[in-house]
Design a protein around this nucleic acid. Structure first.
Length: 1017
RNA sequence: GCCGGGAUGGCGGAACUGGUAGACGCACAGGACUCAAAAUCCUGCGAUCGCAAGGUCAUGAGAGUUCGAUUCUCUCUCCCGGCACCA
């Protein structure tokens, strides 16, 4: 027997170096073969080093990549470092070291650890997000977003962590607490950079793009949920003027006021949205069918109209309530168990469908950040409104009668959910949130509620009282941190440019969020307006190319500047109609074929049409600009992070960069006057949402990556990583990728989805079934595992533990099983080799049948990520079923070969080599070593993947179970292709079967070829 | 509350499109080797009745479809992950 022992530490490093030196895992840029891009989520190189969770995903993707390589694919399998971020900075603060230095140190350690596992990475493409040559392009992307109007500055109430003294993205707040330190998060109004991920151009693509992706359903639904699309309608409720509110006016009075406001606001309202007025409250509802049941309105306490509408006698109550609400943390406000509270404003509105006067309340269960910040309350058909109405004794009007005859299943589920009250129409004690038949809805009574939903929406549109609408839960992405260790935002603040623009600007106001959104959504939008000679001061016909518009959103108080790129006058609608391209830009979704369509689409009032016909119309092509915000010129990128002495966040909302005067003071690239640099830095997502693009061309100095190389590699075919990134990284990366796609930086051929297939590894828990964490002290260090068992055993064990995507506990006992197996392989192969050399064993190739089954099984399992079962197949093959391997003899106690198969003391050397090839993606080091031992040349890692003979995977004889009344009572060994008549005779002849039958004929006889015989007595 | 995923021996887990439940590994027990131990090798190992042959019960609980259900359908319980007053 071979005397040498399996000592992984003696051979693993050797092979790792050999692979590197031979460059066998370097991907060629323009592959002639089929390409495959296998990507791991790159790690944040923490000071603690790798934990055993990292190698799980890396091993799986490595096995897959090696498998593809052996199958003739050109494989791109890169690795890099996501190295900006808070921990490095916090560490620097504590120890007074440079984040740059500790980051370098951590990277070195991570790289050593990852390399010690023998992964087949192409290290020539290694990237690091903190490298100026890399973040130059992160900054470049930001500038492009800025140019497109997708990155903007805003004072926004953001999540603020008092301990870390920094703003947090929504996603970093877990249960109202800071994800990193657990401190309760408070709201703070702070100047921020935001990225408009909610832009119309992208949000629906982010949603619909999911459909074609091969991702786990759970991740897709998480993203869908996060985007949170709801379809419904917005409805305008007119507010009754304060003085008139006490005596609810008949319609005449009311209308007069309405006309008044229309005239006042016309100028401030973009074409087609003339319905918006400052005395209307817009609400969003997914249930326009319940509109007749809307018995009151509720505004969020932050709604911009609250102060304007509140009646004097309610002023104090409203102010108190607003103050109270503002003090509450998010956690308090969203606590569901809490009873709803609210205050009457003293104001009333008119329900547009029945002209009923309804009270307006404020309550903090209505969120300012969603929809329009206001709701219509339909207590009879919404549980929240119902609760509120009950408490404050507000009227409840039923407008939908639950269907009397319901499908049985629906009925049962209602009964069990305790909602049986609905069935009796017991509206006093309960509310019905389902559909049904309309009642109390005027002439629509008796209509199906689903149908009515559409009917009433059409009615609203026709009557200029509302329109079909879509809302999303997704918020814009807070894209700045008040921290040092991140990419500087390449923007310069110039006071002179700002005042210049402001001086030249025409002011326009928007009361309507939708109009605002439409105008702001980008360069292609065209603003149109009828000329109005009566209003000299605001004679918009004067606005020419090169002028500016100062646009104010009355609701959110947001201010934007628009530059007029082109101004065109049209004498009439007919003339405008001749310019279909222009119309398309205004209303991209509506097809306008006739002039009538045009008028309808724009919902012109007759007065307005009249004015256009008399005075003409002007249209502007505009571009959103950021006055006083000047982009750092591309040629000056990267804008490098300056060296600082102190990294403490200032806590004022400014980053530590603000205290480096030398860096902050600069010249405006546009006008040359004194200016200051932006001191916020980018969040960690900035570098990680596009890194996979850079791997394709990591050293390109001229472009983010060359289109040719991108065409060769993108999209990523397989992306492996943790499910914790389901909505953060994966959504941002998809957004940025789509943006770069639209920009042309990602070529059309690549498509606009970056990751075709996604696999999530399950969490590895500690021995005690708890999450591994430093504080619990149950973290397993891979270095120690490798030292004791070797990298191959570590890889094998991580794959053997259980299904890849499931959470599973680490067990040190478990790893000894695979280690023993590798020991056995080592010892046996050495011994076999020695004895073949000594000619005490003969080599006869091709007699093993089980090797074909193994190839088949392993090939399929790798494709399906079923690595755990692969490994058990390896064991079964090597040890043999019942301890009888069919490809070789076995060692007995005296270390002598004992024939276990019919072939005697012969070995199927081809089968052994095949076995090693199959094993090599899993345990690459031992496979290489034994491959050479058996006299082969070159690397097993680049050998061709074995093929199997399907015929030989099929057993000729089968042990067929015989079931009697559903239970296995006997077994019979038969040729696989035995016919039914043959088998029936054989089965009925069996002693055991006769015993069960007791002379009777079976009532039923069934034979499933290759599977089972079943009889019923 | 809503969405998604689970529940199989002492443990991690197998079981293809319904067809022998518990593969493989761990732990455990007995044996071999050893002065002894470790390592290694062999045997056994769901529960239960039985000396055995064999029987009975078993895949979270209950029902259903089927010759046959871990697998399909319904209801329920519990666990994990996510969202959470989103109108």
């Amino acid at each position: 027997m071979g005397s040498n022992k399996y000592q992984p530490e003696k051979l693993e490093n050797k092979w790792q170096q050999a692979w590197l030196k031979a460059k066998i895992f370097q991907a060629k840029d323009f592959p002639k073969m089929k390409k495959h891009y296998v990507l791991d989520m790159f790690p944040y190189p923490s000071a603690e080093g790798l934990h055993v969770g990292h190698p799980e995903g890396y091993t799986a993707s490595d096995i897959f990549a090696r498998y593809l390589k052996m199958n003739g694919f050109e494989v791109l399998h890169p690795m890099g470092w996501d190295a900006f971020g808070l921990p490095a900075e916090n560490y620097a603060i504590r120890t007074g070291t440079q984040p740059e230095a500790t980051t370098q140190k951590n990277i070195k350690n991570f790289k050593r650890q990852i390399q010690s596992l023998g992964f087949a990475y192409d290290w020539s493409r290694e990237i690091n997000t903190t490298d100026p040559e890399y973040y130059k392009w992160t900054q470049w992307i930001f500038l492009k977003l800025f140019e497109a109007g997708l990155a903007y500055e805003a004072f926004a109430p953001i999540n603020w962590c008092p301990k870390d003294k920094t703003g947090l993205a929504n996603e970093e707040v877990v249960n109202g607490k800071c994800e990193r330190c657990g401190t309760e998060v408070v709201k703070k109004n702070i100047r921020q950079w935001l990225v408009k991920i909610t832009d119309r151009k992208y949000i629906d693509r982010l949603l619909s793009g999911l459909e074609k992706l091969d991702w786990p359903e759970s991740i897709k639904s998480l993203q869908k949920n996060w985007i949170g699309k709801s379809e419904g309608a917005t409805v305008s409720f007119s507010v009754i003027a304060r003085s008139e509110a006490t005596t609810c006016p008949p319609n005449s009075l009311w209308r007069g006021r309405r006309e008044q406001s229309r005239i006042n606001n016309e100028i401030a309202t973009p074409l087609g949205k003339l319905g918006a007025r400052n005395d209307t409250i817009e609400v969003f509802t997914t249930r326009p069918d319940t509109l007749f049941g809307a018995t009151y309105l509720v505004l969020s306490p932050e709604h911009p109209l609250v102060d304007e509408i509140t009646a004097p006698m309610q002023k104090k109550a409203v102010e108190d309530y607003k103050l109270q609400a503002s003090k509450k943390s998010d956690l308090d406000r969203t606590d569901l168990a809490k009873e709803k509270t609210g205050v009457f404003t003293g104001a009333y509105a008119i329900n547009p469908v029945n002209n009923k006067k309804i009270p307006i309340w404020i309550a903090d269960y209505v969120l300012a950040s969603y929809g329009t910040g206001a709701i219509m309350a339909v207590p009879a058909h919404d549980e929240r409104d119902f609760e509120f109405a009950k408490k404050y004794k507000l009227p409840i009007v039923k407008v939908i009668e639950p269907p009397k005859v319901m499908p049985k299943r629906t009925l049962e589920s209602f009964a069990s959910s305790g909602a049986a009250g609905h069935l009796q129409g017991d509206i006093e004690s309960d509310c019905w949130i389902g559909g049904g038949v309309m009642v109390n809805s005027g002439k629509y009574d008796g209509m199906d509620s689903l149908k009515f939903s559409k009917v009433i929406t059409d009615w609203l549109e026709k009557n200029d009282k509302g329109h079909q609408a879509v809302q999303y839960k997704l918020r814009d992405w807070v894209f700045s941190r008040q921290r040092y260790w991140g990419e500087p935002i390449p923007i310069i603040h110039c006071e002179k440019c700002k005042t210049d623009v402001e001086l030249n600007a025409y002011e326009i106001h928007f009361y309507n969020q939708e109009s605002w959104d439409m105008i702001m959504s980008g360069e292609k939008t065209v603003e149109t307006r009828a000329l109005n000679p009566d209003e000299k001061l605001k004679y918009f016909g004067n606005i020419k190319k090169g002028n500016f518009l100062r646009a104010v959103n009355k609701q959110t108080k947001q201010v934007q500047f628009l530059e007029v790129l082109e101004a065109k006058a049209f004498a009439s609608l007919e003339e405008l109609f001749k310019r279909p391209i222009l119309i398309k830009q205004i209303y991209p979704k509506i097809s306008i074929k006739t002039l009538k369509d045009l008028k309808q689409a724009f919902s012109f009032t007759p007065e307005y049409v009249d004015r256009i016909q008399r005075h003409g119309l002007i249209a502007w092509k505009i571009k959103k600009i950021q006055p006083g915000l000047i982009a750092v010129p591309e040629k000056d990128l990267p804008l490098e992070l300056p060296r600082v002495k102190a990294y403490q966040p200032t806590g004022t909302g400014e980053s530590p960069l603000a205290s480096i005067e030398k860096w902050v003071k600069t010249k405006c690239p546009k006008c040359g006057s004194k200016a200051r640099r932006e001191t916020n830095t980018m969040p960690q997502w900035a570098g990680s949402n596009w890194y996979f693009i850079r791997y394709c061309d990591p050293n390109n100095e001229k472009q983010i990556a060359s289109p040719e190389k991108l065409k060769a590699w993108l999209p990523v075919d397989l992306y492996v990583g943790g499910a914790e990134h389901a909505v953060l990284h994966l959504l941002y990366a998809r957004f940025i990728y789509k943006f770069l796609f639209d920009l042309g930086s990602v070529p059309k051929e690549c498509g606009d989805e970056p990751f075709m297939k996604l696999k999530n590894q399950g969490l590895i828990l500690a021995q005690d079934n708890q999450k591994m964490s430093k504080s619990r002290g149950n973290v397993v260090n891979p270095d120690e595992v490798i030292k004791e068992f070797g990298a191959d055993a570590m890889r094998m064990y991580e794959m053997f533990m259980g299904p890849f995507e499931d959470a599973k506990p680490w067990s040190i006992n478990g790893i000894v099983g695979v280690k023993r197996f590798l020991d056995r392989v080592w010892v046996d192969v050495n011994a076999l080799h020695d004895d073949v050399e000594k000619q005490s064993l003969t080599v006869r190739n091709g007699f093993s049948k089980s090797i074909h089954g193994l190839i088949k099984k392993v090939t399929q399992d790798i494709k399906n990520f079923g690595f755990n079962t692969c490994i058990s197949e390896f064991m079964i093959f090597f040890n043999g079923k019942d301890g009888k391997p069919d490809w070789r003899p076995k060692l007995n106690k005296q270390d002598e070969w004992e024939a276990v198969s019919e072939i005697g003391k012969a070995i199927d050397m081809d089968a052994l080599k095949t076995f090693l090839k199959l094993l090599s993606p899993f345990a690459p080091h031992i496979a290489e070593e034994l491959w050479r031992l058996l006299g082969n040349k070159g690397f097993i890692a680049i050998e061709a993947w074995p093929k199997y003979d399907e015929l030989k995977t099929q057993a000729k004889e089968i042990e067929m179970p015989i079931q009697i009344n559903g239970k296995v009572r006997d077994r019979i060994i038969v040729p696989a292709d035995t016919s039914e008549t043959e088998i029936k005779a054989m089965v009925l002849g069996r002693e055991k079967v006769k015993n069960w039958l007791q002379g009777k004929e079976p009532k039923n006889f069934r034979y499933i070829k290759g599977k089972i015989v079943s009889l019923v007595i």
